[in-house]
Design a binder for these strands. Sequence first.
DNA 1: GTGTGTGCAAAGGCTTTGCAATTGC
DNA 2: GCAATTGCAAAGCCTTTGCACACAC
Lengths: 140, 140
Amino acid sequence: MEQFRDMSSRLSELGYRLTPQRIMILSAIENSDSHISAEEIYLQVRARYPHMNISTVYRTLELLSELGLVTETDMGDGRVRYHSIGKGHHHHLVCQKCGEIVDIEESMLSPLCDEIGQRYDFKVNMKHVAFFGLCSKCRE
Amino acid sequence: MEQFRDMSSRLSELGYRLTPQRIMILSAIENSDSHISAEEIYLQVRARYPHMNISTVYRTLELLSELGLVTETDMGDGRVRYHSIGKGHHHHLVCQKCGEIVDIEESMLSPLCDEIGQRYDFKVNMKHVAFFGLCSKCRE
DNA sequence: GTGTGTGCAAAGGCTTTGCAATTGC
DNA sequence: GCAATTGCAAAGCCTTTGCACACAC
């Protein structure tokens, strides 16, 4: 709930309207314990508010993303998944076989990102990192 | 040309037919110095062979990918890009603003991948790594 | 000759957009 | 009240598929 309040108060601070649709979308993102797709948000919200429209979901996600309140990641299945920035955990191991997603700690990546910054003069967006591969179960 | 011969001979070794379409697709992939999309292949091939069809491109790419002869990567623009496996493992820095793609050396990543392997029992697919962020020009 | 591979056209997923109606501030 | 936001429907991308014909082997 913490982040939900942050996101919604940030929206109104910036002069955006707090419509019921937006509130429900924010809450769906917040209640999701991992990355959530537009359609998942849509279905979840529509279960309680049948008039919800998927374009509203996309437009809200676009807005949240522009404001830097959520991150967009493509986990390799041809659709974008969203995640509240307030939740931390932005690095993932995505199993290409079973689809399992494991978070990895930021501290593991920082040294590499620093090195890339120095060597290539490139600032890595740490919110946007995913490694694909095979988890232990799927390697057997 | 080296890799092209590898890919095409591999196909016929495995009993797949070497049609003119496949040959041109292979050559387009091989001549591309970076990652190439299905549509880019299609346009390039169609310039010389107007009957080329985009579904043939997709079907050939699917085949090459199943056989492990090319890798698929989503650079974050909502389309898949393909790369000949023979060209070596590339890791990339993708600028989220101007789209520039810079290759980074494999040696920079190996230590991290090893560490991930040990700590999370996860085998990172080194063919499939991209970092998003901002290049020097776009940070000004 | 035979069955793999192609071309065509249509459909499929996901996402975006135009526009009129609605509604938060 | 008025501009921001929504709902709806349609379109836009990229990609896949069904089917009849063509052609590599």
